[in-house]
């Protein structure tokens, strides 16, 4: 089959068996200007599972996460080599519109960042700009219910999203992401600004969401990775091998979470999870 046919194939026709992969990186490398941030990353993100990215600071976890929805495109000087496929489609292909891609691959950020608008508008805005034609009230309620926030905010939908507590704001950001019906949700340390109770609620929510969504979460908290994720990628900085002294992020090990934490294959992973480095 010619390449153009493969690329033109509608995404819906991609096979979706139970243990299929939703995102694949193939020898992915990312640079910011002249300095390399990621080198030769090849991993498969499974569908309807939670995949955790762990590793020491500066090893490129967030860079990898932001490559999946091409948020790195917004950083001047960022460029990538290798390939990322989403449902079998190369996301860097010229016919892929990053704006359309970002609706299908949602993102939740480290610091809760609701819009300075009402709770209702926070959820409705993304759907409206993406041309949602259905019943907006219904969509807002469904999204807030799915994010386990509805009961807390149903009486004050017109109040500002900024009046909510930090944990509620983060669930509002999740509801906002769910409202545009993505297939993948990328979470960049979603609980690092939250207290333990809020963190537990978000973790419960993630567990609940994985029936319908594939989740990739960056976390510094190894207990969190252990609690919530099915697969874990332990990322590392490579040894000083590229001459200029700049160290680059690599994936040291990518395994099912219970295996990675109980029986790590890679000595660097073992050193990291036992607290000897990082």
């Amino acid at each position: 089959m010619p390449i153009s046919d493969i690329l033109a194939r509608p995404v819906e026709s991609a096979p979706t068996p139970a243990e299929s992969t939703v995102l694949t990186t193939n020898h992915l490398s990312v640079w910011y200007g002249a300095s390399p941030a990621l080198k030769d990353i090849t991993i498969d993100i499974p569908r309807n599972r939670i995949t955790a990215l762990i590793g020491p600071s500066g090893c490129g976890k967030s860079t990898l996460l932001r490559s999946f929805n091409r948020m790195n495109d917004l950083i001047p000087g960022a460029r990538m080599e290798g390939q990322i496929t989403f449902d079998g489609q190369d996301i860097a292909a010229p016919e892929v519109d990053p704006v359309a891609l970002r609706r299908r691959i949602g993102m939740v950020f480290q610091k809760p960042n609701p819009f300075p608008k009402s709770i209702y508008q926070n959820v409705a805005w993304g759907a409206r700009i993406n041309g949602y034609k259905g019943d907006m009230d219904d969509l807002v309620e469904r999204s807030l219910r799915r994010a386990a926030l509805w009961d807390e905010v149903k009486s004050k939908l017109n109040r500002s999203g900024l009046e909510l507590s930090g944990g509620q704001q983060q669930r509002l950001c999740i509801a906002r992401t769910l409202a545009v019906e993505p297939e993948v949700i990328l979470m960049d340390e979603p609980c690092s600004a939250l207290d333990p109770i809020s963190t537990a609620r978000v973790e419960d929510l993630m567990d609940d969401l994985k029936a319908d969504y594939s989740i990739v979460i960056v976390t510094h908290n190894m207990q969190q990775a252990r609690r919530v994720s099915d697969m874990t990628a332990c990322m590392m900085l490579d040894d000083l091998s590229n001459g200029n002294g700049h160290r680059t992020g690599i994936v040291a090990e990518f395994s099912p979470t219970d295996r990675l934490f109980t029986n790590p294959k890679d000595p660097r992973t073992e050193a990291y999870i036992t607290g000897r480095i990082g």
Partner: peptide
């Protein structure tokens, strides 16, 4: 704040929509 632009972009907004609405 840049986080506002990022939040909107991550929902699949075009640059014009981000500028106009946020």
């Amino acid at each position: 704040p840049g986080s506002l632009r990022q939040a909107a972009m991550a929902l699949g907004a075009s640059r014009w929509q981000v500028v106009r609405d946020h």
